[in-house]
C-alpha cells in the first residue's frame, strides 16, 4: 500500500537527542464556586506544577484515578485550555513563542474516549477527515483522496465508510475514524486519552494492534492516558503515575511494574483484579476514595490514605527523588534526609 502524504510530515527540528516534548511546571487551577452566595471562592488544583519530558518515538503511559489530573494534562498539552503557568518546548521550540499554536496542533493531535461525541454528527466521514487538511491549505480534492487512503490505513473499507455519518458506524469503527482524523495532519505526537476504554475487549485488542502498527508506519510518539494498568503495561515504554494533580512516580514500565516505589503506585497495582478464580484478592490495599482536588491535603497529597504516613509527610511536600535508570518517585520514604523514620536510601 502506498502512503499518500498530502501534507508533508512535520520536520524533525532538534535531531534525535532532543526530547519531542519538554514540560516544565505545568499548572492549572480551576476556580470553583463555594456553596452559598457569600462563600469564599475555592480552587481545584487540577494540575499542580508537573514536569516531565517525552523522547522521540516512545510511548508514555499516564495512569491515575479520577481527579488525578491526567485528562486536564492532555488538554493543557493540546492547549485546549490555557495553563496558569509553566512552559512547553516542542522539539526545541517554545510553544507560544517560536512555535505557534496553529503549528503545534499540526504536530500534536488527540483522540478522545467518547468516539461519538468527538465526531461532528452532521458531517460525513469523508468531510470529517478532510476538514483539518483543508483548513491547513490542502486543496479539497487532494484532502478527499487522502481521507480514503487514511481509512484503509486504519483498517476500514473506504468505499463503504466515506459517505456515512458517525451514527451509522459501530464504536470500534468510529474510534478508528478518530484515529485516522488525528493522523490526517501527519502529526508527530498523538495523545490518546482513554481512547480504547469505551470499547469492548475484543475490539479493544484490534485497536491496540492498530495503534502499534500506525506508530511504526507514521513514525509517531504517543502519550497514552488510561485507567487500565494492564493496557498501559502492554503499550507504554514509560509510565507516569499521577495523584491529585501531581506526578508521584515516573519511569520505565518494566521497572515500575516490577518494583513500584510510591505507596500509591503499590496500592493502585494491588487493586488490580485477579483473573484466576482460585487466587482471589483477599484484602484491600487502601481505604477510602481519592480526595477532592479542591483544598488537597498539605505536604504529600497521598498522606491521608497512605499506610506509611508520618509527620514529615504533612509538613513538607516531597520532591522527586531519582532512583536511577530514569525512575523517579516523589516520596519521603526514598529520601534518607527527609526525616521520615522509615526512610531508606535507594542506590
Amino acid at each position: 500500500m502506498t502512503v499518500v502524504h498530502t501534507l508533508p510530515p512535520a520536520p524533525d527540528v532538534g535531531g534525535p537527542a532532543e526530547p519531542l516534548l519538554k514540560v516544565e511546571g505545568l499548572t492549572k487551577h480551576f476556580p470553583v464556586r463555594g456553596t452559598g452566595f457569600f462563600a469564599p471562592k475555592l480552587v481545584a488544583r487540577a494540575v499542580d506544577g508537573i514536569t516531565f519530558s517525552i523522547a522521540k518515538g516512545e510511548t508514555l503511559g499516564v495512569v491515575g484515578e479520577s481527579g488525578c489530573g491526567k485528562s486536564t494534562t492532555a488538554r493543557l498539552l493540546m492547549r485546549l485550555i490555557e495553563p496558569d503557568s509553566g512552559s512547553m518546548i516542542f522539539d526545541g521550540e517554545l510553544v507560544g513563542g517560536e512555535l505557534s499554536l496553529r503549528d503545534l496542533r499540526r504536530r500534536m493531535q488527540m483522540v478522545f474516549q467518547d468516539s461519538y461525541a468527538s465526531l461532528n454528527p452532521r458531517l460525513t466521514i469523508a468531510d470529517s477527515l478532510a476538514f483539518a487538511p483543508v483548513v491547513h491549505g490542502i486543496p479539497h480534492g487532494e484532502a478527499m483522496a487522502a481521507a480514503a487512503d487514511l481509512l484503509e490505513q486504519v483498517g476500514l473499507d473506504s468505499a463503504t465508510v466515506l459517505g456515512r455519518y458517525p451514527h451509522q458506524l459501530s464504536g470500534g469503527q468510529r474510534q478508528r475514524i478518530n484515529i485516522a482524523r488525528a493522523l490526517a495532519l501527519h502529526p508527530r505526537l498523538v495523545i490518546l486519552d482513554e481512547a480504547v476504554s469505551a470499547l469492548d475487549k475484543s475490539v479493544e485488542a484490534q485497536v491496540l494492534n492498530l495503534l502499534v502498527d500506525l506508530k511504526r508506519s507514521f513514525d509517531l510518539t504517543y502519550i497514552f492516558i488510561s485507567h487500565d494498568l494492564n493496557v498501559v503495561h502492554y503499550i507504554a515504554d514509560r509510565a507516569m503515575v499521577m495523584y491529585l494533580g501531581k506526578i508521584v512516580e515516573l519511569g520505565p514500565v518494566d521497572r515500575i511494574y516490577a518494583a513500584p516505589a510510591h505507596p500509591y503506585t503499590r496500592a493502585l497495582f494491588s487493586a488490580r483484579l485477579s483473573s484466576d478464580p482460585e487466587r482471589r484478592t483477599v484484602a484491600v490495599a487502601i481505604e477510602g476514595d481519592p480526595p477532592n482536588p479542591i483544598n488537597p491535603p498539605s505536604g504529600c497529597r497521598f498522606r491521608t490514605r497512605c499506610p506509611m504516613a508520618a509527620e514529615v509527610c504533612a509538613a513538607h511536600e516531597p520532591a522527586a527523588i531519582d532512583l536511577g535508570f530514569g525512575h523517579s518517585v516523589a516520596c519521603h520514604l526514598h529520601d534518607p534526609a527527609s526525616g521520615h523514620a522509615e526512610a531508606r536510601a535507594h542506590v
Binding site: 459501530s170 470500534g172 469503527q173 469492548d200 475487549k201 475484543s202 475490539v203 479493544e204 485488542a205 484490534q206 491496540l208 494492534n209 502499534v212 487500565d228 494492564n230 493496557v231 503495561h233 502492554y234 514500565v253 511494574y257 483473573s275
Partner: peptide, 24 residues
C-alpha cells in the same frame, strides 16, 4: 477463548494481541 485471549494482561508485552476479528 477469543475473549480471554484478546484481554490484555501481564506477559503479553511486545507481542501482538490475539484480537477477535470483526464486530458483534
Amino acid at each position: 477463548t477469543g475473549l480471554f485471549a484478546s484481554t490484555v494482561h501481564a506477559g503479553l508485552k511486545d507481542r501482538r494481541l490475539d484480537a477477535i476479528p470483526g464486530a458483534p
